[in-house]
Design a protein around this nucleic acid. Structure first.
Lengths: 137, 137
DNA sequence: CGCGGCACGTCAAGATCTTGACACAGATCG
DNA sequence: CGATCTGTGTCAAGATCTTGACGTGCCGCG
């Protein structure tokens, strides 16, 4: 996944940021940081890079800056999302649809068993499966 | 898992290094780096820290340095392994033994489907489940 | 209305990991 | 036997993330 995104000029945290930003336009920096499981400072630097590349735009008045994805960024997201979906499909290629659903349900039971507060922001399991396969490290 | 290990004074990569080093005494730096999925340089620094803390000892003659765990390090490993096992048990607390085995088998099918070369060093699925829950964020 | 708590944004410093590069040991093969 | 090639250890530089700290806007409560 990391290698596939690199060919598009994106790193995994950058892709995570763009994907969540696309799903929740106008989200704040701190909420974005919690969704990607990094500190506010790291997200601040990351957004600076994306803003430099004209992929996200910072609007909003008052203290809190509200970010959204530019049209150029949306084109990259579609390509990146397809690349990640391809990796995901390869990973699940050996499992039938019923088995995939079973695996998804088992993993969700694991996250809920680990405590509600830890994965509070990861209610949308789709992004969760998408964004944290590697990264880590 | 990261929080549990921190109370013992270990980080996740350090714990991974110690666990693999305990399973394979006399392993080289490069092999250790591949097993933990980091570069040789990062593992070199990491081993420097562990060697400073008297948890691992560097023996071996010739060019390749061969590392092993000191008795002091083994005591810490047992405590850390128990702490990690506790987190693992909490994560799997909602699954019955047959379901756990099913999940394990499904995940193994995913790793093999992603390509043999990527996870070549992770043949021992037990350590794989132990060492890469986080890390990678 | 004023005021303390609280989250947010941001600056600076330290730690960790990666990338790139270089020198050397050991194996392979002509 | 000597040349080449791969793998290894190691140094230096750049990037990224974390920790710590500070100033500021926002909200509830006296």
């Amino acid at each position: 996944m990391e290698a596939s995104l690199r060919s598009l000029g994106l790193s995994v945290p950058q892709y995570s940021c763009l994907e969540i930003l696309n799903a929740r336009p106008g989200i704040s920096n701190a909420d974005l940081a919690r969704a990607v499981f990094v500190t506010r400072q790291a997200m601040h630097q990351l957004l600076g890079g994306l803003q430099e590349a004209e992929l996200v735009s910072a609007g909003g008045q008052g203290r809190v800056q509200r970010y959204s994805v530019t049209p150029e960024g949306q084109r990259i997201i579609t390509a990146a999302s397809a690349a990640v979906a391809a990796v995901e499909e390869q990973m699940l290629s050996g499992l039938q649809p019923s088995e995939r659903q079973r695996l998804h349900s088992d993993l969700e039971r694991c996250t809920t068993a680990l405590g509600e507060d830890t994965f509070k922001g990861a209610s949308d399991a789709r992004y969760w499966a998408r964004l944290h396969l590697t990264s880590s490290p």
